[in-house]
């Protein structure tokens, strides 16, 4: 469903992605790991359509279409979901209004009638249970005053509401205690179907105990330098990233 070919991108003139290649098929879970500053979040931003990041070379094809030509909202309507590393607080906008607008935009895109208020609230209730989110959160402003864990759960809740084809979770595990981590992971597993895919960006292996990836990639200095099965995550946990760095440097030297 997603093919990334030699993707290069920069932020404010600084090259961050230096030629990323990646292919994701329906039903797959890909984990992207890597040290700080390797370009993981930038990759997520490019896929979601953030203007701040400028693509300088390469292509991204999503279900045969040129993803890079689409606006952020069109990508969302086509089923791409980004779980933000730092979800944005939007004072004064209630979660209900926010989600209603998002869900109905997507329905309109699919040629469906907007949901009635009662159907929508019913859907909210179901999904809230699915991700074990406190029902009071839904009545508050988007992310405003949420704790770190609540914000992350709220991302998973939104994902459940929008039922994306490709969900990109950008360090959704960071700052979570073990209980919240389990809730987030369970949410993901419940939403997972044979026809949707996930990109799970993470620092640590522990999230992957709960969300088992099909493929693990290591992103380093703007490139994917290693790709293997889920055992790679364990190896990284044990040895850290230094050996990867050394390996990369040796490869360059050789």
């Amino acid at each position: 469903m997603l093919v990334i070919n030699n993707l290069k991108a920069s932020i404010e003139g600084k090259n961050i992605l230096k030629g990323v290649n990646l292919e994701i098929k329906p039903g797959e879970i890909h984990a992207i790991m890597g040290p700080n500053g390797s370009g993981k979040s930038t990759l997520a931003s490019v896929l979601a359509g953030r203007d701040l990041v400028k693509v300088t070379e390469g292509s991204v094809t999503y279900f045969g279409k040129n993803l890079l030509e689409m606006s952020a909202e069109d990508r969302a309507k086509e089923g791409i979901f980004l779980g933000f590393q730092y979800p944005i607080e939007i004072p004064g906008v209630s979660m209900v209004n926010f989600m209603k607008a998002a869900v109905n935009e997507q329905r309109k895109h699919k040629g469906l009638e907007p949901l009635s208020a009662s159907d929508f609230l019913k859907m909210m209730r179901e999904k809230k249970e699915l991700v074990e989110i406190d029902s009071k959160l839904a009545n508050r402003s988007v992310n405003e005053g949420f704790s770190g864990g609540e914000k992350k759960k709220n991302e998973i809740f939104q994902m459940a509401m929008l039922e994306p084809k490709l969900a990109i979770l950008d360090e959704t595990d960071s700052g979570l205690d073990i209980d919240a981590l389990r809730v987030v992971a369970n949410g993901v597993n419940k939403i997972k179907r044979p026809d949707n895919s996930f990109i799970v960006i993470t620092h640590y292996q522990r999230l992957l105990d709960y969300i088992v990836p099909d493929v693990v990639h290591v992103l380093y200095d703007g490139r994917i330098v290693k790709t293997a099965g889920k055992e790679l995550a364990l190896e990284l946990e044990e040895k850290g990233y230094d050996w990867i760095k050394k390996e990369v440097e040796n490869n360059i030297l050789a």
């Binding site: 979601a48 359509g49 309507k77 944005i88 926010f98 607008a101 935009e105 997507q106 929008l162």
Partner: peptide, 14 residues
């Protein structure tokens, strides 16, 4: 801008 992008990334038009 960040808030605007957040909303758009959920499919809400500009």
């Amino acid at each position: 801008d960040d808030a605007l992008f957040y909303l758009r990334s959920r499919g809400i038009n500009k």
